[in-house]
Design a protein around this nucleic acid. Structure first.
Lengths: 197, 197
DNA sequence: CCTTCAGGTTAACGACCGCTAACCTCCCTG
DNA sequence: CAGGGAGGTTAGCGGTCGTTAACCTGAAGG
């Protein structure tokens, strides 16, 4: 993993805070003044960095979908000769890392898609579709008894399972980050296995 | 089930359309004029039936949580002498029926909770917590190897799995209502089973 | 037949919000 | 040391939205 050591740019600060606020109160529930205040500048100052509020959401959603897809593609490319079970495990692991480490983004990802301009929404949906298709292919290699529509539904359901972490109150009395990752991983595999029947 | 034969009241019409619109575009993304138009009256006419837009959302969310909890309690009460596996199956079945038949409500249920007044939010959260606790109890009877925090996390994750249906495009090429219910049921059981280890 | 009231209507107010305009202030560079 | 761009500021405009006010109408009841 290419760890960042340099300080985040202002743009990145803004995107991060906007993601948090959008996830907490919804796109329409957050004003530009609040976003500005979260990074220490005031409302209209944001327009030096983004064309508008919509552009922030668009960049966030396109970024998320792109990152997920890119990570999945990389994992598949590295999986030459690796048994499909291990590839699926790798996909699951990547998704879990994302869900646990970028909870606001995961929340936005399936909550605010409809607030985008048509062109942006199409782009995001296309990226999402590609991501799903990668999963479906791998899942069907591991569980050949699954038909294609069933596998697709199963993949969506497992996404729901993996993305459920934001709904858990703050870290709290949970199994902890490592334990949670392991639990989610086992449940995902169990769900896929049971989908066959 | 107590099937309704009489026509829905205007209040019920409004709630149903409001739920659909809120689920589609978010609470803040829908105007009262739109809600009114959806039932054939115009904006301010709604105020003959509800104190305000907030009151509609509150009634929806309290209603959902209450219905889910009531259904689960009824199922538990009917389960005297029944093996815990069957009780869990009954809970799962009830939740799936709700998720498949009232998709907008399920969507609202975990998306717009934070838009409520403090008192309403507390009430909804309390109902939700009770519902989760019922599940946790039953799950731990079926899978005694699960610790209590793990069982709770697993229950939340399975909710994520079962509630994922709204994310699937319109009915489409899916397995169909019956097949989808069966698929979700198997996956939920598989996920719980795998949570143990 | 008059009253009442449930359930509508339109007009309009006040608040808020996204965005632009106009201006300021460093800091870098030739 | 001029000057110009990057990145802020505040004031304010225009539109939208939730809500209220004032008025209308048709049906039920004594």
């Amino acid at each position: 993993m290419a760890t960042r050591t340099d300080a985040p740019t202002r743009r990145e600060q803004i995107l991060k805070e906007a993601a948090r606020l959008f996830a907490e109160r919804g796109f329409h529930g957050v004003g530009v003044d609040e976003i500005g205040a979260a990074v220490g500048i005031s409302g209209p100052g944001l327009y030096r960095h983004f064309a508008g509020k919509d552009a922030m959401l668009a960049e966030l959603l396109v970024g998320i979908s792109g990152q997920l897809l890119k990570g999945a593609k990389r994992r598949l490319a590295e999986a030459d000769g690796v048994p499909p079970e291990a590839v699926l495990d790798s996909l699951i692991e990547g998704h879990i890392d994302f869900a646990l480490d970028d909870r606001p983004l995961i929340t936005l990802h399936d909550r605010e898609l409809d607030r985008l301009r048509d062109s942006d929404r199409k782009l995001v949906r296309q990226l999402q579709r590609q991501y799903v298709e990668l999963w479906v292919e791998v899942v069907r290699k591991v569980y050949p008894e699954l038909t294609e529509p069933t596998a697709r539904s199963a993949v969506h359901s497992v996404f729901g399972l993996l993305n459920s972490t934001p709904h858990l109150g703050r870290p709290g009395a949970l199994p902890g980050r490592g334990g949670m990752a392991e639990l989610l991983h086992r449940m995902a595999r169990g769900a896929f296995g049971a989908a066959g029947g």
